[in-house]
Design a protein around this nucleic acid. Structure first.
Lengths: 189, 189
DNA sequence: AATCTAATTCGATGGTTGTCAAAATAGTAT
DNA sequence: ATACTATTTTGACAACCATCGAATTAGATT
């Protein structure tokens, strides 16, 4: 059995219902059980096609087959369907989808775009959003809880770019670094 | 504006969310607004691709754009999303999907399969489900509320097949026709 | 006005998948 | 056991669509 993450399961749910024929099948089965042949006639499709759709729906747990004499009758798993729909209503489920994505990817891309092979900055970005990404990156050179003199600050900043004055000013302006009595420290959180 | 039936709208909803990239976008936007560029970096896609997805999501009413300085920030329309999810929970919605389908298609197909060009039956089907379809068709020759003598019954049935005895017996056995004191009448409903 | 940048549109392409026909399977009736 | 029938599987084909790169548009900064 292939282990399936939560968001993959949610995606599969949407994919399964994102087809007119399968959606109609679910609608019909919500009334009563039907055989493959009956569904095929009502949908004007070949039995093999309907069988294919039913197997996909079954794999997603939305329908189940019950043998009845000559035929096999398919029925809707209303519980599974409702459970899935209910998951949609809980905001957490959407957060879980996003949770598996790297939120820092944007910052990393900007840093990479503006960095030379040796890690120093080519230029300091003029656009605010990109500048902030760079600053968030640079500030990680400062340990939380430590206090730095201006000279030490410039030392650390000079590893990124010669214009340490601009970097220092922007870091403070962005609230990432704080200053008092000639000493600098990194803002918590 | 193209008028869109209820079930078409539901189908469109599933189609829009049935894509990994779009699902991730929705997940990310459930946290906060993002620009096209940011989303592209986080999803490792080209901005043009993300723009395409966003326009589809917007057309479905799931996201909206807000101009902010240089960028245009996209935000999730949580209301629309919840409204859609809620529709899924109401059984009626599924019935509506099926409602647009012709439930008698199966019967008609069986009748067509077993009928000669002049409308008479080639043979009387041996399979129960198909026999019932034929019988449901034949019984419509009888008016509701009228009472028929055996002779008249045979007359009507002979238009379909010579073996009127079998037809008559099966019609009664299936509960479509009722008999009492030598008179026959069609069952109500 | 001129220039830069984000966003969108357009055209092309590769992959996915719904559909069918034919063959294989399973299960029932005779 | 044999024949029949519903269902499933397989292979092939066509339509759709996600993605990309290039060109264009829209907005904002200088």
């Amino acid at each position: 059995m292939t282990a399936k993450s939560n968001s993959e399961e949610l995606l599969e749910f949407f994919k399964v219902l994102a087809d007119a024929s399968r959606l109609k099948i679910v609608g019909l089965l919500s009334q009563k059980g039907f055989t493959v042949e009956q569904l095929a006639a009502m949908l004007e499709l070949r039995p093999s096609t309907v069988s294919h759709h039913l197997s996909r729906l079954a794999r997603a747990g939305l329908v189940s087959a019950r043998a009845e004499g000559y035929y096999s009758v398919y029925e809707l798993e209303t519980d599974a369907l409702e459970a899935m729909a209910r998951r949609l209503l809980s905001r957490e489920e959407l957060l879980a989808v996003a949770g598996e994505i790297d939120l820092d990817a944007f910052d990393r891309k900007v840093v990479a775009d503006f960095s030379l092979p040796d890690g120093r900055l080519k230029i300091i970005p003029a656009q605010r959003k990109k500048l902030l990404a760079i600053l968030r990156h640079i500030v990680t050179d400062f340990r939380l809880g430590s206090r730095y003199g201006e000279k030490r600050v410039n030392e650390l900043l000079s590893r990124h770019h010669d214009d340490t004055a601009t970097l220092r000013r922007e870091l403070v302006g962005a609230g990432l670094l704080q200053r008092e009595a000639g000493k600098y420290w990194r803002t918590e959180t």
